[in-house]
């Protein structure tokens, strides 16, 4: 339809102003020294050489990768499992769906404060039930805790998986049942292959989200510790930019995040092409 494009205009302009323009600005700022008060002053590749030599950056990147490896598979299995469990038409399932989404609705800060208490070794109910030690003072304890508490906030992936599972025509399952397929056969030969393209997309999105979502828990629960074990890239960017006011250098770090994202989007695009999802 002609001129319907105009209706998308506010959205496209919003994206250009709030995503496109900042992305270009980040590219420019990445090669400057900028405190936010004076400057920016062009410094060529100085930030890049600094980044390469910056052990704190590499440690943050490593922590982020550890977080991805710990959290993303758990989150995806939880989202898929919840979607498959709750896709039937039944009273229990329709009561269960909002409950599975509920932790996602809890504001991040409140959620972090809740876990700070749950994991508290003296007062927390987890300590009272399981007699756990203070997980957050141990590097791996903190890493695993932050990954685990992220597993509850899987609402978006859950509803997308749910909608995709629902879009599989029921006739296929009936045909499979008449063909003698049991539940496991139908799951492995029908459900999972048919959901694979979207599950792939969701996984990639979750990997990229890992460059973002762990900021609040790392900021409030562990403050990046113990011993920098939970200093992830977002927290490192935040500190560099807004605690030490090195906005130029922080842009260089942000640029690496763009590059990681671009690589992942490219991989996703090629995979999507193979699955004939996009042109």
């Amino acid at each position: 339809m002609k001129k319907t494009g105009l209706l998308a205009l506010p959205f496209v302009v919003g994206l250009a102003a709030l995503v496109g323009l900042p992305a270009v600005a980040a590219l420019g700022l990445a090669f400057t020294e900028f405190s936010g008060v004076e400057g920016p002053r062009f410094t060529g590749s100085a930030n890049v050489s600094r980044l390469v030599a910056d052990t704190a950056f590499w440690r943050s990147l490593g922590n982020t990768l550890i977080y991805i490896v710990l959290a993303v598979p758990l989150r995806m299995v939880a989202a898929l499992g919840a979607a498959l469990l709750l896709n039937r038409r039944s009273r229990t399932a329709s009561a269960g769906r909002p409950l599975a989404y509920l932790p996602t609705v809890v504001p991040d800060v409140a959620y972090a404060l809740l876990w700070l208490w749950l994991l508290n070794p003296l007062y927390g109910p987890l300590a009272a039930i399981f007699g756990t030690a203070d997980l957050l003072v141990d590097p791996w304890g903190a890493r695993v805790s932050l990954a685990l508490l992220s597993v509850f906030q899987i609402g978006e992936a859950f509803v997308v998986a749910l909608a995709v599972r629902r879009s599989i025509p029921p006739h296929l399952y009936e045909a499979a049942a008449v063909d003698g397929a049991g539940p496991w056969f139908a799951l492995s030969r029908l459900t999972l292959p048919l959901m694979t393209p979207v599950l792939g997309l969701l996984t990639l999105r979750d990997v990229i989200l890992s460059l973002q979502v762990n900021f609040v828990p790392a900021f409030l629960l562990t403050d990046g510790g113990p011993r920098y074990a939970t200093t992830y890239l977002p927290l490192y960017v935040y500190r560099t930019a807004f605690r030490y006011f090195r906005l130029g250098y922080a842009s260089t770090i942000a640029l690496t995040m763009f590059i990681i994202t671009a690589v992942i989007v490219l991989v996703q695009y090629r995979l999507a092409r193979r699955w004939r999802l996009t042109p």
């Binding site: 025509p169 006739h171 296929l172 009936e174 045909a175 499979a176 049942a177 008449v178 063909d179 003698g180 397929a181 049991g182 029908l190 292959p193 048919l194």
Partner: peptide, 19 residues
Amino acid sequence: DPGERDVAMVFQDYALYPH
């Protein structure tokens, strides 16, 4: 169960597995 009945069915929309 349907699979144990030794019958085969052709559905109106054929229900071919698209993948």
